[in-house]
Amino acid sequence: MPEAAAAGTSVVGRVLRRIGWRTALLFTAILLPLWGFAELGEDVHKAESFVFDDPLLLHAKAASGPWLDQAFLGISWAGYQGIIVFDLILVVVLLARRRWREATFASVALIGSALLNLMTKQLFARARPSLWESISPQDTFSFPSGHAMGSMSLVTVLILLAWGTRWRWPVLVVAALFGLAVGAARIYLGVHYPSDILGGWAAAIAWVVGVYAAVFYGARRPWRALR
């Protein structure tokens, strides 16, 4: 009996080690962001206010100036039109290199993120902030932020594709800083509440990691082919 128990424990240990990283990935990168989005979405649906939204917006307005206006307008442009161009280039490059699975992952993750954002905006129908007249006015719904969701989707795709290679840390730092800058730009311009940005980030991370898990389930991870 002791030998059987030891053998059983050994088998369980091997299984846990094999699926451990997947379990951790699913929990930290899918379930937690989904929980955060659900919490934000519930309050938005009930039209409840967030204590940090207006103060952060007003703080951003107080710091505004001509050069910051131009800088954040440029970052905001890069976070939408620039993202679209980069997304297309990324998919084309992956296809040209015959990275079929990676191209499928990027395409589904990025296109799906855009469609998901359009649907959730209509679902929550949150009005834009109106604390002041923005220099970049928007007439669509506010939650979740399309700029935040699109940029974070690209950021997550790039990090997952690069992870495990020698480029992982440069990609992580540059991509994360870009995602943060886009979110800050939308708050600075007064066209999104900070909770819109958080909702966009959470939805993007959960969606992209979910697509990654589906596309690469049981297959060779992308970084092994990209070294």
Score class of each variant (00 low, 15 high):
residue 73 L to K: 10
residue 73 L to W: 05
residue 74 G to Y: 14
residue 74 G to I: 08
residue 76 S to Q: 02
residue 77 W to G: 02
residue 77 W to C: 01
residue 77 W to E: 04
residue 77 W to L: 05
residue 79 G to N: 00
residue 80 Y to F: 14
residue 83 I to P: 01
residue 83 I to D: 11
residue 85 V to G: 02
residue 86 F to C: 10
residue 86 F to Q: 08
residue 86 F to L: 15
residue 88 L to P: 04
residue 93 V to W: 14
residue 95 L to V: 05
residue 96 A to D: 00
residue 99 R to T: 09
residue 100 W to Q: 08
residue 101 R to M: 03
residue 102 E to Q: 12
residue 103 A to N: 12
residue 104 T to V: 09
residue 104 T to I: 03
residue 104 T to G: 15
residue 104 T to R: 02
residue 106 A to C: 13
residue 107 S to N: 09
residue 109 A to W: 08
residue 109 A to V: 08
residue 110 L to S: 04
residue 111 I to E: 12
residue 113 S to R: 03
residue 114 A to C: 05
residue 116 L to A: 13
residue 117 N to Q: 08
residue 118 L to V: 13
residue 119 M to R: 09
residue 119 M to G: 15
residue 119 M to T: 14
residue 120 T to V: 15
residue 120 T to N: 11
residue 121 K to M: 13
residue 123 L to C: 10
residue 123 L to G: 12
residue 124 F to A: 13
residue 128 R to A: 11
residue 128 R to L: 04
residue 129 P to E: 03
residue 129 P to C: 08
residue 131 L to R: 03
residue 131 L to S: 06
residue 131 L to P: 09
residue 132 W to F: 13
residue 133 E to M: 10
residue 135 I to Q: 00
residue 135 I to S: 02
residue 136 S to G: 00
residue 136 S to A: 03
residue 137 P to M: 05
residue 138 Q to S: 08
residue 140 T to W: 09
residue 141 F to N: 11
residue 145 S to D: 07
residue 149 M to H: 10
residue 149 M to W: 03
residue 149 M to L: 13
residue 150 G to E: 05
residue 152 M to G: 11
